[in-house]
Write a protein that binds this DNA or RNA. Structure first.
Lengths: 260, 260
DNA sequence: CGTACATTTGATCCACTTCAAACTCGGTGG
DNA sequence: CCACCGAGTTTGAAGTGGATCAAATGTACG
């Protein structure tokens, strides 16, 4: 299989930290690259020390230099309103790419902060760009990732402008569930890495409203909640309640839309 | 004084319709390309017959084949909720690129419809991709355009989840004003290409609310409105009211964020 | 010049926010 | 080992911004 020799200088941390052996590679940047190309990508990626909960990966206004792939843990992205309050724009789970919206600025337009202990792969953007010059598949994958984020953003706009509180929370939970599933975790039982406050901020709701909807869902036996632990008891109804399916958010674009 | 006509750079269509002579090229895809490269880009671009008001450029679910640059007129993008109502996700003015969020689907995830008589440049995506293989500047420009859209989307999320009705409308008007200005039109006097209904849909407000805010602004002598004609009387206060500056939405990323 | 549609205005209603207070839980130090 | 603290969460009560309903006015266009 891998004809290439292991690159020199892989000690303690870096030993296992290679794209070829990474269980997330099929969801991440290396997708659709062949082994040699993955190896090239590997060489420009730095594995950083884990971030502790609450630490920033980067701050709005920092010089834009790298994009990052989450390896474990989770992050939130947020921007600041001019009154100084934060608006969370995204949560990131393992395999997801962070920082792509800084490409045409010299600085990151958003901040990224760890919700728990989190490890990331650091990818210097200029080197990624240079590599993409030679690897059409990598280029395409970058575009795919960005256009997927664009589509997710449109779904989020729809949520914020058309859905009521229950639909928002149902959408949020079922979306998380699908993402966990894709990453090999249970789709029915998981731990929310973010606080109620952060959920509310993200969904455009007051904390109290989020809390109330959680209890309502619990009473309706849709879910069972214990602090941050969530069990989904009735997935069908939850998705039904969520309203619209997040087409393309969880699954690759099969022939879903073809039916239309 | 009435707003000038949109001079997308064409009288008899195909003859004048070349990127090199197009007045929009500095805002559009050719930005930062040299003359030769522009010429190459030119060759893959098709100029279509103008769309009439209400016609679709493409529909959600159509096979994804091309991206489009608006040359004159304007478009709206929208997605359908599963109840069949539309959610407008964007309005597009001349020089703006449409359809990039379809890249990783086989189909367009949104619809694009003309708000008025509109001409576009049609760019077959596979050919664009092939060309981008040889032109790093073009590649970068594509990334820039997409990442700019990502940033605009985050701003929109902030608007939808944190701003009240007046702030939303003020943001909307001042944002349009800046975009018109960049394109060489008056920033103080312009014609809204969309209906009140569409504004409300886009901003997550009921039509009635939009209308009320317009009259309130008019009474406060912030703006003067006559149907779709808008005069901005007090730009400073309007921007003040809009709350947060759309950093990067209108201007290229100067050293705005550096101050932080 | 009249019909259909878009916009405006007024009156009422309601989902969510806000304010206030109790409760839970993980951690910490006496 | 347990009392205590503070942040996060839940619950209750009251207030409100914008939605909805209804109707009048304005406007485009065949």
């Amino acid at each position: 299989m891998p004809s290439r020799h292991l690159k020199g200088g892989c000690f303690s941390l870096s030993k296992e930290a290679r794209c070829v052996t990474c269980s997330l590679s099929s969801l991440c940047l290396p997708l659709s690259l062949n082994l040699e190309d993955i190896d090239q990508l590997d060489r420009i990626i730095k594995r950083r020390q884990p971030l502790k909960k609450g630490e920033h990966l980067f701050r709005q206004g920092d010089a834009f230099e790298c994009v990052y792939a989450v390896r474990s843990g989770s992050l939130k992205n947020y921007i600041m309103t001019n009154e100084g309050e934060e608006q969370i724009t995204n949560f990131h789970l393992p395999s997801e790419l962070v920082g792509m919206d800084g490409i045409d600025c010299d600085v990151y337009p958003i901040s990224a902060k760890a919700l728990e202990t989190t490890t990331v792969c650091e990818i210097p953007f200029t080197r990624l760009e240079a590599l993409a010059h030679d690897l059409p598949d990598l280029r395409q994958q970058i575009l795919r990732i960005m256009s997927k984020e664009l589509r997710d953003d449109k779904q989020m706009m729809m949520l914020l402008s058309k859905k009521n509180a229950e639909e928002r929370v149902a959408t949020f939970i079922s979306n998380l569930s699908q993402r966990f599933k894709r990453r090999g975790y249970s789709q029915f039982t998981f731990r929310l890495p973010m606080s109620r406050n952060e959920i509310g901020n993200y969904l455009g709701l007051a904390v109290e409203t989020v809390s109330r909807v959680f209890t309502r869902f619990q009473n309706a036996e849709l879910i069972a909640v214990n602090g941050k632990e969530v069990h989904i008891l009735d997935m069908d109804q939850l998705i039904e309640l969520a309203g619209m399916v997040d087409c393309g958010s969880a699954q690759p674009p099969e022939k879903i839309a073809a039916a239309q």
